[in-house]
């Protein structure tokens, strides 16, 4: 237990440093934009300008600006938007993030559950028909970028066949296509990974031993093999979260879902720097937290974990 605590504290420390790096990066972004990033001629007025200068303390030297910037982020104050008058970044986040979160959670749940199931089935039918079919589909799933998949889905299922609505986020029927477009890639990745680790685990001596005990195939797969086979899947969850998050930028744009991703892409196109910075910091904090949780879960799942070394598979 003491080792677990030490491990957790170490991951926590790395997490804080990472967060600091990203905050500093956004600050460097702000001061490295030629001229003032907030000198905007359009859709802006005197008050906005004054608000911005006050928020970022532009009259102060850089190091004071930097410290005050960190302070404002630590208090969850991301400042005003340039392009959307009378809106703060916080307003946008509180409006957009719940929707993006909903989309993301449904996607992850679908991807993880179906990905693992497909992976197990393929491994148990190794070199069989089902194995080839599912893995063929999985390779395709990885190969098609989600914005192309989304467009094809809209074209076929929404416009041609009119089974699902084309856009927006209102009812479960509206959710089908965006979730499908977003989940296919991660699902395919999880399925392939589960399959390959499962195949490797199934050749291990302890599986032979379990067979020699006369256990049923069901117990061998779910009690002995799966837990070990899922370790690598847990380790890539952080990357998958990140992938799904950036995926929402695209999917929300295509399906006109009023989520945070859409605001983010708009802010990039309009060079709305406070929104870009605030959202980046917020997203990063979210992802880094997810990565931290994944690490802790991994530590719980694998009793062998070497606390002084991430992953611990080398032992």
């Amino acid at each position: 237990m003491k080792r677990m605590l030490k491990y957790t504290l170490k991951r926590l420390f790395i997490m804080v440093v990472t967060l600091w790096v990203i905050i500093t990066l956004t600050f460097l972004l702000m001061i490295s934009i030629p001229g003032s990033p907030f000198n905007t001629d359009q859709a802006s007025n005197e008050t906005v300008q004054a608000n911005l200068e006050a928020h970022y303390n532009l009259d102060q030297p850089y190091y004071i600006q930097y410290l005050l910037y960190i302070k404002s982020i630590a208090t969850f104050d991301f400042g005003p938007s340039i392009k959307q008058p009378n809106q703060t970044v916080n307003d946008l986040l509180s409006r957009g993030f719940p929707i993006s979160f909903e989309l993301g959670i449904i996607t992850i749940a679908l991807a993880v559950v179906s990905g693992i199931l497909v992976g197990i089935i393929a491994a148990l039918r190794h070199n069989g028909f089902l194995d080839y079919v599912t893995m063929g589909i999985a390779v395709l799933g990885i190969s098609i970028p989600n914005f192309i998949l989304a467009t094809i889905l809209i074209q076929q299922l929404a416009v041609n066949l009119e089974i699902f609505p084309t856009a927006t986020w209102r009812s479960p029927a509206h959710m089908v296509l965006p979730v499908l477009a977003l989940a296919t890639g991660p699902m395919a990745i999880i399925a392939r990974l589960t399959r390959s680790t499962m195949l490797e685990v199934l050749t291990q001596d302890y599986i032979k031993m379990a067979k020699a005990k006369g256990l049923s195939p069901w117990k061998i797969v779910f009690k002995h093999a799966l837990r070990n086979a899922l370790m690598p899947v847990v380790t890539i969850m952080g990357t998958l979260f990140a992938g799904i998050l950036t995926g929402t930028f695209v999917i929300e744009q295509i399906f006109a879902i009023p989520g945070m991703g859409r605001y983010f892409v708009e802010s990039i196109n309009q060079r709305d720097y406070p929104v870009i910075m605030g959202t980046t910091v917020f997203y990063s904090a979210f992802l880094i937290m997810m990565l931290f949780i994944v690490d802790i879960v991994y530590g719980i799942l694998d009793p062998r974990i070497k606390m002084h070394q991430k992953g611990g598979k080398s032992g």
Binding site: I14, T18, I22, L245, I268, R271, T280, Y283, I288
Partner: peptide, 21 residues
């Protein structure tokens, strides 16, 4: 340790930030 910190950075967000600048 440096790698661990860099690894924790969200890849595409960093790319976006850099390209914005």
């Amino acid at each position: 340790r440096i790698i661990e910190v860099l690894y924790g950075l969200p890849y595409l967000l960093v790319v976006i930030l850099l390209l914005v600048v």
